[in-house]
Amino acid sequence: MKKYRHALPLALAIAFGLLTLLGLLFVPDLAATMTGWASFLAAVALLIGVINLLGVHARRLAGGNAYSGVLIVSMVAVFIFALTDFLGLTEDGVNTIFQLIQVPLEAAVASLLVFFLLFAGMRLLRRQLNVWSVLFMATVLLTLLGRTLLPGPLAEPFRWINRILSEIVVTAGVRGILIGVAIGIVAVSLRILTGSERPYDK
């Protein structure tokens, strides 16, 4: 059994990987079937994840963690409203809870980001004064000046600088990152297909 415990997942991963690759290249229906199964399994995994999350926080609640209790109560409450919506007892109960609780909270937290960034930028040179911090601060100021409303003669130079930065520096950097990520994905895919990488066996 120990032998099959490692060999079976490996064989399944290699087989379905090759089948999916073949479907994407030559048989679109096969590829669609494979991705459909994958989507279904992802949904099942999401459900299992929710149940696992509930179980984990139930154990933490037994250990005295109050935040886990809040999470469980919220989860159960949303589930109850979803059930009542499904049964027709309530109308748009889940969306109402979301709009009244989730959206304001997240928006409020995110709105603080501008203050944090401003304070961090102001203390940057006080904490660390070197070439890179000065270059970083200069780039921030130039980008802001290039994207804000400025008088005509004053706006053109900053717009030009902003364009140069965006089209050359930023695009080059982002493309380099994307190319690196793509190469990494190809390498990981090949490792999975050859059985060298087994993320399912961890």
Binding site: L118, G121, M122, R123, L124, L125, R126, M137, L141
Partner: peptide, 8 residues
């Protein structure tokens, strides 16, 4: 912009 420039 002013805050960052001044503090810098």
């Amino acid at each position: 912009i002013l805050a960052l420039a001044g503090s810098s």
